[in-house]
Amino acid sequence: MSPSPSPGVVVDSVARSFGSVHAVRDASLEAPAGQVTALIGPNGSGKTTLLLMLASLLRPDAGTISIAGFDPVTQTEEVRARLGWMPDVLGSWNVLTVRSALETTGRLYRMTAAQSSRRASELIELVGLGPIADQPARVLSRGQKQKLSLARALVHDPEVLLLDEPASGLDPVARNDLQLLIRDLAARGTTVLISSHVLAELDEIADRAVYLEAGVTASADRVAAAQGTERPWRIRARDLPGLGGALVAAGVHPDDIRTDRDELIVPVAGEDAAAELLTRLVRAGVAISTFAPALGDLEHTFQGLARDTHRPTGSTR
């Protein structure tokens, strides 16, 4: 263990444009060591561009980036020695076997042949590619390539791990394994920054979230405001008409109640209101089997922010 904790990832007012396209306009975020930070945003919001800048591949037009205490622009080598990057594009050297692809990556990180070979075996074990370790990469399925890509990002045991859509294409078991692996890495002090648009899955794994939209990271205020808005809750009871009556009696407007198969969905503003509603329903004697938010925390915030941004502002030219 190092005496001082690693600063992880710090991004301050970073911008990057491609010609007239402003991919990232003003992004600021912090990803502390030992935590999993989710980077959330709709398609085309600049997530991948931001990650490319963090991965030392793109030069920001403005702002500063610090990866494990080093600047990717001026201290590229120091950053690369400490950074693992799993891109959203699944590229693999088709002719090489899984094992030799990992060994080659180790060699590219200036490890000796023996070190690379040992590390490749460890990683094959870790991500569960054992049965196909000596198959050429071109025969791998999408999910297996995903695992190979993750293993490649881990070859040099990085302090900072950037994962761009790591779980797409994975089956539920593999996805669960991935989550355990990422949590384990974070528990050992790795800074993990993970981007995805499958928000339910990030909900289970992320300690914190950064929202990016149209190249701008959302401020803490806007996130708090979005979290406080009403969100749908899912309530299930054997006696649906009785539940409906109890809801109206508890003060829910009848027009707000939606029926979804054998559940009712009602809007609730925040955790406190939900607790109060549940208490009333139980007091009214309704036998409730499910009472839960219909949207995950991240998704709710995300949708709240998206609504906020898309609302017409009234300014015209």
Partner: peptide
């Protein structure tokens, strides 16, 4: 060709 296959950038982020 490497860029098309998606293997260029993953090589560039290493210490090579």
């Amino acid at each position: 060709g490497d860029r098309d296959a998606g293997t260029l950038a993953t090589t560039q982020v290493t210490l090579v």
